[in-house]
Structures are given as structure tokens and as C-alpha cells.
Simulated scan of single mutants.
Amino acid sequence: MQRRDFITAIAATMLTGHVFGQPSRYPDKPIKLLVGFPAGQATDIVARLLAERLRTLGQPVVVENKAGQGGSIALAALAKSPADGYTLMLSATASLVVNPHLYKTVGYDTLRDFEPVATVADMPMLLVAHPSEPFNTVSDMTTYAKANPGRLKYSSSGNGTLSHLGMEVLKRQAGIDMLHVPYQGSTRAMTDLLAGNIDLGLDTVAVTLPHIQSKRLKPLAVSSDSRLAFLPQVPTLAEAGMAGAAFTPWLGLVAPKGTHQDIVLRLSKQVVNTVKDPAFGERLRTLGAVPRAGNSDALSAILKREFALWGKVVRDSGARVE
């Protein structure tokens, strides 16, 4: 081989990342896993469970919390990170497919700036009511709401959150009028709902389940496609006649655009195997999450479909956050 050809071959190999640790020796240093919410919240807890399992790659996986703008601060940071597989993010649904439509600017383009790696978990939401309300089913709730327009108040964890937008979709499908009362986070929303100052709420299983178990709230429906194993008596929104309002928030792992496909595929396989592990799945269920083992292609399809879906929901609702 002539010297020029040799140099060209080496340069091409370096560009594809198969020498000097990329990706044949990946990983050869710690991996950073970004989370767009404070420590202790559901996404953070799942991220730490996943990080512990991903140590089998041969390097520590360190969770770094970058809270703000509903997870978009962390995604903007990820978009600007080197595409070398050493900075990843466990992202919630809203951060990727809702926030770009909701905020004036988020600092990233969901469909162009990231490499989908894998789905990790579903985070079903429960429609709950205060026990004093004169209805126990979605059908009875809609009948009551139609007879009493504007009487029912529902809480959300903030304007433009899934707890808000999900209820807006339900309102439109049912043809009912309810008052939206936004709060700063689920804790304050639940406090007023438990006190009877609010009539209804839509929030994650992790937030609502303890109050259902203590009989301080009554469940009307779950937002997911199927019933929950730990609440088998609670119908889905589809079963309650609200198929158009059914949705399932999820958590997915993404990397910066341009991350070598060998690295993406290795990470994807590792995550899918982890999520399929019964012990890991049981840990997720204790958090009100449901295991969702999906590879890079599966997450890519979800992003494309739901980016368009939630864009329409945001536009129809008129929600906007500056």
C-alpha cells in the first residue's frame, strides 16, 4: 500500500470511530446520563435504576440532573454534547414531543438532533376524582358535566403538561366544559384535590395510587391501552368510551445526533435486555411504571408519530408557555 493510500485508510477509519476507543473499545470512560427533572422524581429514580444496570457495559454510568423547562434544558444540553456515546439522556414524553410545540424556543429539534436508543418504561396516568363527587365512572362524569357546564374543576401539574393536555383531549371528545386549574407541580395539585377544592385530576400512578389505596381519591380510568395489573378493576379510557383520549406517557433513552450506529445498537440491546429482566420490571412497577422494551427503531417510530400528534393537541388547546 502506498503511503498516501495508507494515510487515507487510517483517516477513514478514524472518522468511522474504529480506532482510539470508538466504538470498538466503547466505553472506555464513564458515561453521563442526563435527567431533566430534580432528584427523587419518577424519571430520576428510573434513570438511577437503569444507570446501575448499565454498569455491565464496563464503566460507571453517572446520573446528572439538569432540571428546568419541563426537561428541555437537559435535552438542549444533550443536543450540544459530543456524539461519542458518553452523554445520554433518559427523557420523558413531554420533553421530546410536547415542549417543542409549547415553548417559544427549546434549543433543539426533536426529529433532527437526537439518535433514538430505546424505550424503557410507560408511565400510565389515572383519572381520579374526589370521593364526594356524585359519579364513579367516566360515563357518569360526562353526563354530570353536560348537565352542569363549567361546574367541574380539574387540576394539572402546570399549563401545557400532559395532565393538562390529556384532559383537554378528553373534554373535546366528550363534548364537555370543565375549568382547568393549573398548579406548579403535582404535589400542590393533589393537595387541593384531596381537600375537595378541585373535583378531578389526571396524574401518574406514582402520584395518585397512594391516595386511591387510602380511599381519599377514587379512580375513574387509566390512560393506557390496557388495564394495570395492580388496579385490574379500573377500566381504560378506551373501555370507557374515550378511545380518542387514551395515551401513555413513556420514558426513552436518546443520544446526540451522529452517535455511531455501532454504539447506538450496543446501548439499545443492553437497555432492551435490562427492561426485559423480571427483577428490573418489578422495580419499575413499584414506581407505578410499566416496562416497555423497545429498540431504536421502535423509539424512532414513536417520536415521529407522537411529535405530530401532540403538536396538534397543543395547537388545539391554545396552550403556550413563554
Results as ranks from 00 to 15, higher is better:
R4D: 15
F6V: 14
M14P: 00
H18M: 08
F20L: 11
G21C: 02
S24E: 03
D28E: 13
I31Y: 05
V35Q: 03
P38K: 12
P38W: 06
Q41C: 15
A42F: 09
D44V: 09
V46C: 04
R48H: 04
R53G: 01
R55M: 06
V62Q: 11
V62R: 11
K66M: 14
A67G: 01
L75V: 06
S81Q: 11
G85F: 14
S91W: 04
A92S: 11
A92R: 00
A94T: 14
L96C: 00
V98G: 08
N99Q: 13
Y103F: 12
K104Q: 13
T105Y: 05
V106W: 00
Y108L: 05
T110F: 00
L111W: 02
D113E: 02
P116S: 08
M125D: 13
M125N: 13
L126I: 15
L127G: 01
S132H: 12
S139C: 06
M141A: 02
Y144K: 02
K146H: 07
L152N: 04
Y154I: 09
N159Y: 12
S163V: 10
S163W: 12
E168M: 10
E168T: 11
Q173A: 10
Q184G: 10
Q184M: 13
G185N: 06
R188N: 14
D192Y: 07
G196T: 11
I198F: 01
L200F: 07
L202H: 10
T204E: 05
A206G: 10
V207D: 15
P210M: 09
H211G: 06
I212E: 00
A221W: 03
R227P: 04
A229V: 14
P232C: 11
Q233D: 15
P235E: 13
L237K: 10
M242P: 05
F247E: 04
P249F: 01
G252Y: 03
A255S: 13
A255L: 02
P256V: 11
G258P: 15
H260R: 14
L265C: 02
K269D: 10
Q270R: 09
T274S: 02
D277L: 00
P278V: 00
T286R: 08
G288P: 07
G294C: 09
N295G: 07
D297W: 01
K304R: 14
K304D: 04
L309A: 11
W310Y: 12
V314P: 01
D316E: 13
S317G: 12
A319F: 08
R320W: 15
R320Q: 14
V321N: 05
V321H: 04
